[in-house]
């Protein structure tokens, strides 16, 4: 595994914090949602270096556990009703614009660096699309998870699951 968790207690405390059932504390709930979303991205990041193989008679394909993680966590999208309260929707839109700004900035850097490096060394760069892919994976997670994280039960479930999952990964016992 490329990424090691040096101080897992911090992430576990974050997961426990996000499982606390706060009521009518809008700002705290937003922070909880953000922490859970971060932990979900970390979880996907941690497992994405491990692959499983599906093989049939004449072919086989390797799939990253990260993709499985994204698909599994994105399932939260079905747990939330389509309607969001006004301030929630406003906040979601603000964060979404934050995402577009970031994706735009990264894309501009990639294009600029492609031309600079190609001019000097004859090649642009081969890892850029994978980096963008990783970012897009997180973006998909955000779009699918954010609304569902408003439900206290989902936060509770995910908080506990991620605390256990990250704890196991840190001890090298999950994959």
């Amino acid at each position: 595994m490329d990424v090691t968790i040096e101080n897992p207690l911090i992430l576990i405390l974050g997961a426990v914090f996000s499982a606390i059932p706060f009521k009518n504390r809008y700002q705290l709930v937003v922070i909880q949602k953000l922490v859970l979303f971060y932990l979900a991205c970390v979880f996907v990041n941690l497992v994405s270096d491990e692959y499983f193989t599906i093989s049939a008679w004449w072919w086989s394909v390797n799939i990253s556990y990260g993709i499985l993680g994204v698909v599994f966590l994105s399932g939260i999208v079905f747990l939330k009703k389509k309607t969001m309260a006004n301030d929630e929707r406003q906040l979601y839109k603000e964060i979404l614009v934050g995402w577009w700004i970031v994706l735009g900035i990264i894309a501009i850097h990639m294009v600029a660096l492609f031309f600079i490096l190609k001019g000097f060394y004859g090649y642009g760069y081969e890892h850029d699309l994978k980096s963008m892919g990783a970012m897009c994976g997180c973006f998909v997670l955000f779009v699918c998870m954010w609304a569902g994280l408003s439900l206290m039960q989902v936060r509770l479930f995910l908080g506990i699951s991620l605390a256990v999952g990250i704890g196991l990964i840190a001890r090298g016992g999950l994959l």
Binding site: V3, N45, Y125, M135
Partner: peptide
């Protein structure tokens, strides 16, 4: 470029 490459392996963390 190195910082962009880093995002491939450590985008979440």
């Amino acid at each position: 470029q190195a910082e962009l490459n880093l995002l491939e392996k450590r985008a979440g963390a």
